[in-house]
Design a protein around this nucleic acid. Structure first.
Lengths: 328, 328
DNA sequence: ATGAAAGCGCTAACAA
DNA sequence: TTGTTAGCGCTTTCAT
């Protein structure tokens, strides 16, 4: 069943178990000779330290959990990859948890895992603030794509990003923008709306909002119809690329030309944005770095007071493709 | 730091620790009255069983690991989601491991995790057979998108799938097919080639092979050029959708019309295949079910002898889109 | 039906 | 530098 233990190694190497333990965890505190012998014997026996026993005693599990709102959103790929890479460097294991857009599922999963992980990264969490605070009280937490005083966070700089979008559209002659909003319980949806308003005001253009829409491709049809129905706008800013792509498809069906009749912008720069027709202009950013930074923050979280939890805002970049053009 | 233990609960409920333990793990062996009291007290105290302590003793970790060859391949989304869903039903935790297309990374991660998980699902493993057998000797293993005698596996039925592809192309008048092969250490690449040959023979058409190519979009350019250079073929079958989309892009750049001049087929039916222009005809299948089945098999693996490890082959479906058409 | 007590594999005092 | 020993939180005989 399970392999050899330190007892086996200790017996074979003719030392005490504590020496074996030290040889692994504090190599400096054993003489080079014994250490080498212990390691040699351990290797020969195929000994592997049991993480559970270690965790039970030390309280450290060398495991962090990343909770994502919906794992089928391509946008998470790079995020996960970045987190995974950073975790591996520190020999941490990354636990991936899918909340399936359900706050209840998210909460339950977190509670279940809490005793077994060193901390949580909550990405685009759908949980209300007070729940986040509760969790942060038990375990170190890093928020991704969300901010809350008292909890560390990593986001792409949506304020600057929305400014980039609006200024791009304004420079193309657009004066009436329409934001196709994301879900009500999405912090990002609210924040983007606020940022768009500010940016629009500064740029001297108008922006309205419709929605909310679930950010999936199949919701794009409804969003496009609603946008057309609202009328007046020459540029549509969708909550994310998935929704934007759905909008693009529906507009094509209805014979509305993009970008001639209307321009469309998304968020996230997912792979498909580069592949659809026309290519989708979208606000991207280094999601890999977001994942990396989140783990980084989490691993160093213990040493910080609740008051000065860092808020990291990584730069965005507006990727111009065919879906935006000058007004005619 | 850590929460209340069974001792706290036992003290508060005025019972022995073993009673608390039983109340949770074997509800039938405690009187209803005490059980209710214990559970009530536990809930009040916010008691959560420590998974490590439990695992240490029982050897069961309630955790399974899914190793994927490259997590940025969209094709894995549904697979992961299916696995996650099935695992959650049994209150298992899904550990996601990214091998980054590197056999060395894959091997190291598996060895590191081996003592902490109940089993592995290896998806499109790049490891040689003997390594897989070694791993299977230590822990239950389910192969995904790969088969090996003595180890359980779940695959989409590529033999039938390749027959569907060839017969579709043949019915459109194609007589010369070209397979753009995947990586050399990909079992799927070899298997698909064999299945295509068989199917081609039966359909009375010819099929050749070029490659290998790393199955990424940016390799599609080289693949397309090589295909054009090889000449003669009227239909290209790419190792997967990523490669196929790259091919599509390169062909467009070079002024080769799809499907008028050449037809293109991919594998996996990733999201982007429905979004690119023209839409990509591709061999899809219920990847969610593959993920589900993999976990299912893994959780019931202990009870089976090495000889009769099941090989599950799930049905494929050829999704017709614009990238295939009749020869002119 | 319940309690007492012995570990699971490892680490961390404390001694030597 | 190395050994001894007492647990970490839980399950599981073995008694009662």
């Amino acid at each position: 069943m399970s392999g050899p233990t330190i007892y086996d190694v200790a017996a074979a190497a003719e030392v005490a178990t504590s020496t074996v333990s030290r040889a692994f965890s504090q190599p400096g505190r054993v003489s080079a000779a014994t250490r080498d012998r212990v390691l040699a014997v351990a290797a020969e026996l195929g000994y592997r330290p049991n993480p559970h026993a270690r965790a039970l005693l030390s309280g450290k599990h060398h495991t962090v959990a990343m909770v994502v709102s919906d794992i089928t959103n391509p946008h998470y790929f790079e995020l996960i990859r970045g987190a995974e890479m950073r975790a591996r460097v520190s020999e941490y294991t990354l636990l991936l948890v899918n909340a399936e857009e359900s706050p209840r599922v998210e909460w339950e999963q977190i509670q279940r895992l809490a005793p077994a992980v060193d901390g949580f990264m909550l990405s685009a969490s759908r949980l209300p603030d007070e729940n986040l605070l509760q969790i942060a009280a038990q375990r170190p937490v890093v928020l991704v794509s969300r901010e809350l005083p008292g909890i560390a966070s990593v986001v792409l700089d949506h304020v600057e990003g929305c400014r980039q979008i609006v200024s791009h559209l304004a420079s193309l002659g657009h004066r009436d923008l329409l934001y196709l909003a994301g879900p009500r319980n999405s912090w990002m949806a609210g924040t983007r709306w606020a940022a768009l308003q500010t940016a629009a005001e500064q740029a001297g253009v108008s922006v309205r909002r419709i929605g909310p829409f679930t950010p999936k491709v199949n919701q794009g049809g409804a969003a496009a119809d609603a946008a057309l129905n609202a009328g007046g706008a020459t540029a549509l800013v969708a909550h994310n690329d998935l929704l934007a792509i759905g909008v693009l498809q529906r507009l094509a069906t209805r014979g509305v030309r993009v970008p001639d009749d209307v321009s469309v912008v998304g968020f996230d720069d997912i792979f498909a944005a580069d592949v659809c027709t026309p290519g989708l202009t979208t606000l991207g950013g280094a999601h890999v770095d977001v994942g990396r930074a989140a783990v980084e923050l989490l691993l160093t979280a213990g040493s910080r007071a609740p008051e000065d939890q860092p808020r990291v805002a990584l730069p965005t970049e507006l990727v111009l493709r065919g879906s935006t053009g000058a007004t005619t």
